[in-house]
Nucleic acid binder design. Structure first.
Lengths: 124, 124
DNA sequence: AAAGTATTTTAGCATTTGCTAAAGTATGAT
DNA sequence: ATCATACTTTAGCAAATGCTAAAATACTTT
């Protein structure tokens, strides 16, 4: 018999049960969402996504210029975002334009709203 | 003279300038927000925060029980969340109750809304 | 005071991350 | 065909992450 819970008096068996069930129901979504949040939980990638949101589309070279970073580093971040299905690439000649995938606009918009509201507060 | 931008014809100097200025204005907020997103961009921590949001407060031992994980691992995740100021701890005897910091309720609520809306879709 | 409970901290380790530098691919211009 | 441009990929490396196991702390009960 392995002990599972702490034995403190207040241990609310009902609460534990409820939590267990609650997690069971959302586990898959949490894992999926955590992946997305992990992608934008990096300052460089959040900047990239923020720029793409504001400018519709940008090429690797432009982003590299704006963020003052190695083209290769930017390319690698974009690859992660593409692998995570957050952005798409559109080739035009030798330049490749990246943009946010429509499916994720809704998930990301509260994040951008947050950033912009903080920006506004500063201007007051 | 170091080259900064790609030399492609379409290179829109105005756009680059606008992006530069835009990033400059939000950089601090982006870094701050990326830190928060990075914290919840981990499935275990997102589950913890989700549970705390639903149950108001929980002790380490309860969380460990619900998520079926080592107490030490949970404690370490809680420490990160506390260091990031996302949660607070309240000691009561030998048990320590964690809860989400009021200041972050607003930042996090769209995330929980997202999770719960996905849960509901499944029930349809 | 001794033993038990709840939690934290430390050490150790395998894995992942994010960068730089260098080489590779693809398109465009001469 | 050769060279330049835009980008990706690879290799290598230092730093960060997330876990387990063990030791440390702090309170409670006996």
């Amino acid at each position: 018999m392995k002990k599972v819970t702490c034995v403190r008096l207040e241990a609310n068996e009902k609460q534990i049960q409820r939590c267990h069930e609650s997690i069971r129901l959302v586990e898959v979504h949490i894992i999926e969402l955590a992946n997305v949040l992990n992608l934008v939980g990096n300052a460089v990638r959040l900047k990239i996504v923020y720029l793409l949101h504001a400018e519709k589309e940008l090429c690797v070279c432009d982003i590299s210029d704006v963020l003052q970073m190695n083209v290769s580093a930017i390319s690698q971040h974009l690859r992660k975002l593409k692998d995570g299905d957050l952005v798409t690439a559109k080739k035009e000649g030798q330049t490749i334009y990246y943009s946010i995938k429509e499916d994720y606009r809704k998930t990301l918009s509260p994040i951008f709203r947050q950033i912009n509201s903080l920006k506004k507060m500063e201007l007051v």
